[in-house]
Design a protein around this nucleic acid. Sequence first.
DNA 1: GAGTGGTCTAGACCACCAT
DNA 2: TGGTGGTCTAGACCACTCA
Lengths: 248, 248
Amino acid sequence: MGTTQLESVPEPKYWHLKTVLGEALDTDFSVGEILPNERELAARFGVARATLRQALEQLELEGRLQRRRGVGTTVAPPRVGVDVSTTQAQWPGSGEEAWNPVDCTLVVPPAAVARLLDPDRGADEPVHTVRRLRMTHGQAVAAEQLYVPARSVPDLTAIDAPSGAARARGVLRELQRLTLEGQDRAVELGSARADDAKELDRLPGAPVLLVTTRYLTDGRTAAVSVATYRADTCRLTFGDAGDFGIAS
Amino acid sequence: MGTTQLESVPEPKYWHLKTVLGEALDTDFSVGEILPNERELAARFGVARATLRQALEQLELEGRLQRRRGVGTTVAPPRVGVDVSTTQAQWPGSGEEAWNPVDCTLVVPPAAVARLLDPDRGADEPVHTVRRLRMTHGQAVAAEQLYVPARSVPDLTAIDAPSGAARARGVLRELQRLTLEGQDRAVELGSARADDAKELDRLPGAPVLLVTTRYLTDGRTAAVSVATYRADTCRLTFGDAGDFGIAS
DNA sequence: GAGTGGTCTAGACCACCAT
DNA sequence: TGGTGGTCTAGACCACTCA
């Protein structure tokens, strides 16, 4: 009989679909090219649209596709490598990175952040919160929330604006007067909060890489940064040489 | 009228559901506790099961839930921090890490890996491939594929077994005789290949953190490692102090 | 065998973008 | 206004675990 081999453990349709589509992307499409719409693709493969979408979601997770509502699905360029190494410890805002201060307000930090800050700080005590965006090629790739307890910037004058980018720069300037003793960093998977998603041009809940940094000075935590990187377009790089990586 | 405020931009049901469930997890459940099954939860919230699942998927992505087929949905413990820092450069297998050599074979590396290896290497030339598992608390948290070109281990004798864990240890031993000049590292989001998924006790396609390391010696790439970490249970830590992190 | 999560279907409507 | 991807429904069946 001319039947193909029966799979003893058949793989799911969407998984097989993902493989087929992935190969087609390599051979039949070039970066930026737009794919047929979901309804047509589903019909072409003989599956329900939901099943097709499951395959597309995986490919998007792996950074191979980019989908935009009202526009279509396009072939994504390779992920950009963004350097997040900590070879020489330095304060945020020094050494001219690609970070762009946006705003600064006083907020009560979330519990998870409060745990990392000075333990003998009042639990509900607000801290300075600097908001920054990391730009690459005109695109925002990361949004950061930097939490700075008042005691870390005692000389912050009232001359600076009470909020806004000017005050953000003021807080960073004051931070740099402290002696940085070290920093810790952690990377984990998360989903974009509504405000981050908006600035990163993604939908809420989009997968992101959370980079948490603790700045240490004088035996205590002087500041905590939580940076939200687009997981679809970014590859975080550490170390000396830099530009490389593996697409899944 | 007693209506609640009309949202000008109503958030999706699954998003609201995720928020409600997330708060319930904090207050009404403890780690390891089992949730009602999906059909009952969906009925209780008055939504279709698919919508409820969308919310559960997000919470699982954030490491707050653990779902196992045939068993149920449980409240996940906080993510474990696994150290992947490169403060002092060292070869894999030295300094007794939690890595467990499993096997060693000869394979032609995938194109993405071949690009990182020695450029004047034959394109289809097979390389030694060491397979290792990283164990934590009796659980596999990462699976690694280490690609070692033959020229990096010229003295590898035929006395070692042709494959298996013994040969894997032999390759690692030979590697450590080289002078390590530096290493690069990159972290990105991926989805688990079938073989990795099996060893990590996940379904294929599960979100993982891909850690790619390039080992440099004598001005060239002596080895390339691609480690696949469970994104749901792991937080990758860098730097001195170590144990901290933010749940999304 | 009972109960769980995983896959899949065939529809519907909505939010957004371009023209 | 027409076309896109995003959300949602109400079902069905399958693969797996465990008593």
